[in-house]
Simulated scan of single mutants.
Amino acid sequence: MLPFVDYELPTEPPPGPPIAIVGEAPGSDEVRQGRPFAGRSGKLLDETLRTAGLDRRTCLVANTFRFQPPGNKVAHFFASRGRARKEGVGIVEDWGPFGSSDYVRAEFAPDLDHLRDTLRRLAPAVVLALGRTPTWALTGRNGILGLRGQVLECRMVPGAKVVPTFHPSYVLRGQLRDEPLFLADVRLAMAEAGR
Rank of each mutant, 00 (worst) to 15 (best):
G159S: 11
A193S: 07
T165D: 04
R177K: 12
E107W: 11
P97E: 08
R177D: 15
I144T: 10
G23F: 06
A193Q: 07
R155Q: 12
E12T: 08
V126K: 10
L183V: 15
W95I: 02
F78Q: 12
T64R: 10
R141Y: 01
L49H: 04
S28R: 14
G27Y: 12
F78A: 09
I19G: 11
L152E: 02
R173T: 06
R105M: 13
N72G: 14
V74K: 08
L152H: 00
G149C: 03
F98M: 10
G23N: 09
R177V: 10
F67A: 09
P10H: 05
P180K: 09
A160K: 00
G16C: 14
W136F: 11
Q150R: 15
V171F: 02
N142R: 01
A193F: 04
Q175G: 10
M190G: 01
P14W: 09
R187G: 10
A79Q: 00
I144K: 07
A75W: 06
V151W: 00
L147T: 03
A189I: 03
G34Q: 03
A193E: 05
S101D: 15
P134S: 02
T118Q: 14
V5H: 06
V126A: 05
G131W: 01
I144Q: 11
G71N: 14
V61I: 07
F166N: 12
Q175E: 10
P70Q: 15
S41Q: 14
G39F: 06
A193H: 04
L130C: 04
P124E: 09
E93S: 06
R121A: 10
G23M: 11
T11P: 05
L172M: 11
Q33Y: 13
T64S: 08
P18H: 08
R155S: 07
A184W: 05
Y7W: 13
W136E: 02
D111V: 07
N72C: 11
G39I: 02
L54C: 03
P18G: 12
C59S: 13
E12M: 10
Q33K: 08
I19P: 07
L60D: 10
T133A: 00
A191E: 15
D102P: 06
V61W: 02
P70W: 15
P36H: 09
G34E: 00
L145Q: 06
R177Q: 14
G149K: 01
C59W: 06
E107N: 08
T139G: 07
Y7T: 11
R195N: 10
A84L: 05
S80N: 12
L130V: 11
P164H: 12
R85Y: 02
R40T: 13
L54F: 04
E24T: 14
L145M: 05
P3Y: 02
S100R: 00
P158D: 05
L130W: 04
V171C: 04
A79M: 04
G143C: 05
A79K: 00
V74T: 15
G96C: 08
L145F: 03
A125M: 11
E179K: 15
A160M: 12
P134D: 04
Q33E: 15
Q150I: 03
P15Y: 14
E12W: 13
E107I: 08
S101C: 01
G99Y: 02
V151P: 00
